[in-house]
Amino acid sequence: MLRTFDIILITVMLAAATVTYKIKYDAGKRMAEIAKLQRKIDFEKDTITLLKADWSLLTQPNRLQKLVDIYQSELDLKPIDANQIVSIDEIPERPADDIENIISSSDELLASIKKTDQIKTGSVGQGR
């Protein structure tokens, strides 16, 4: 009887060791995934910070004024008068004929895009 009891205990210990190893392996795998995601999140946060700094640099009033002075003749910019700002209700509606012209011209544009999209360029993504 002692022998049967020993075999049962050894089997239970092996099963417990196997389950423990599997749980430990899965936990390590999850921790690696969490670390990878945390690195991605940190990278995205750094990218956002960099883009905010870049936006602040690009929208500085002095820089924009210099660009306006350089491209004044091409842009034909003029200061805004207070009476130019209106509410949504004051904007006239566009006639239906204009909308139909826009739709027909967009259909022509889509047709021309479909024609040019059929040209094979040999890009990296094709043929794989």
Rank of each mutant, 00 (worst) to 15 (best):
I113C: 08
L109K: 10
I88L: 15
I119N: 09
E108P: 02
L51F: 07
I48D: 15
S56N: 11
A53T: 01
N83F: 10
F43W: 03
I103G: 03
S106G: 06
N83E: 15
E108W: 13
S123N: 14
Q60Y: 06
P61W: 01
V124R: 09
I70C: 05
S104T: 04
D81H: 15
I80Q: 08
K114N: 13
V124P: 00
S112E: 12
D117M: 02
P92M: 12
S123K: 06
L75M: 05
P61M: 04
G122C: 04
I113R: 12
K120H: 15
K66W: 04
Q60H: 10
K45N: 12
T116G: 13
V68K: 09
I41D: 02
G122D: 05
T59K: 04
L77V: 07
Q60I: 02
L58Q: 14
Y71E: 15
D97K: 03
V68M: 11
D89T: 06
L51Q: 12
I99A: 06
I91P: 00
D76K: 03
D98Q: 05
T49G: 05
L50I: 06
L110R: 08
K66F: 02
I48V: 14
E93Q: 15
F43R: 02
S73H: 02
A111W: 02
R94M: 03
Q118E: 01
L75K: 08
G122L: 02
D42Y: 07
S73A: 03
L77S: 13
D89P: 00
E108L: 09
Q118K: 03
K115R: 04
K66Q: 12
